[in-house]
């Protein structure tokens, strides 16, 4: 009996110990420090056959708007104006889930999660892009 109690104490201690371990087996974020803020809603003032997208693209480090950034949704490409703003609308289609990429030269691309547009027709996404800090490397095709 005493022996089995000791084993139980050791087992519980191990479980607690593992539980308190600093090793966390979870997904590590990628190198991209950018991100986006999103609002999806159903707006009754919008034509029900359309979906409206608006938003702005910023530099994440200084919050300055990025002009001429490109938003890509499917085959559609839209550029931001000098204030980093964009807006466009698409016709509602059978494809009710989609995603948007925010791209700008010199910045790492941000890609949203899939957006469920089945019951929504207004999407506001502000992209915060981080500068591409990867160095230029000279490989000469030898290795």
């Amino acid at each position: 009996m005493k022996n089995s109690n000791s084993k139980l104490i050791i087992l519980v201690s191990m479980i607690i110990g593992i539980g308190c371990s600093s090793i966390k087996n979870k997904l590590i974020p990628t190198d991209n420090k950018g991100g986006y803020k999103i609002t999806i809603e159903n707006n009754l003032n919008i034509d029900p056959t359309e979906i409206h997208f608006v938003g702005k693209v910023f530099d994440v480090s200084n919050r300055e708007p990025i002009a001429n950034a490109e938003l890509v949704i499917g085959c559609l490409k839209i550029k931001t104006n000098l204030n980093g703003e964009y807006s466009f609308k698409i016709i509602k289609s059978d494809t009710e889930i989609t995603y948007i990429k925010g791209i700008s030269v010199g910045y790492k691309t941000i890609e949203t999660i899939f957006l469920n547009l089945k019951n929504n027709n207004f999407v506001k996404i502000d992209f915060y892009l981080t500068e591409d800090d990867r160095p230029f490397i000279n490989c000469e095709g030898i290795n």
Partner: peptide
């Protein structure tokens, strides 16, 4: 020292 490259130039962000 580099990782197999002959040369490397830092990115514009630097």
């Amino acid at each position: 020292s580099l990782a197999g490259q002959t040369a490397s130039t830092n990115s514009p962000s630097t």
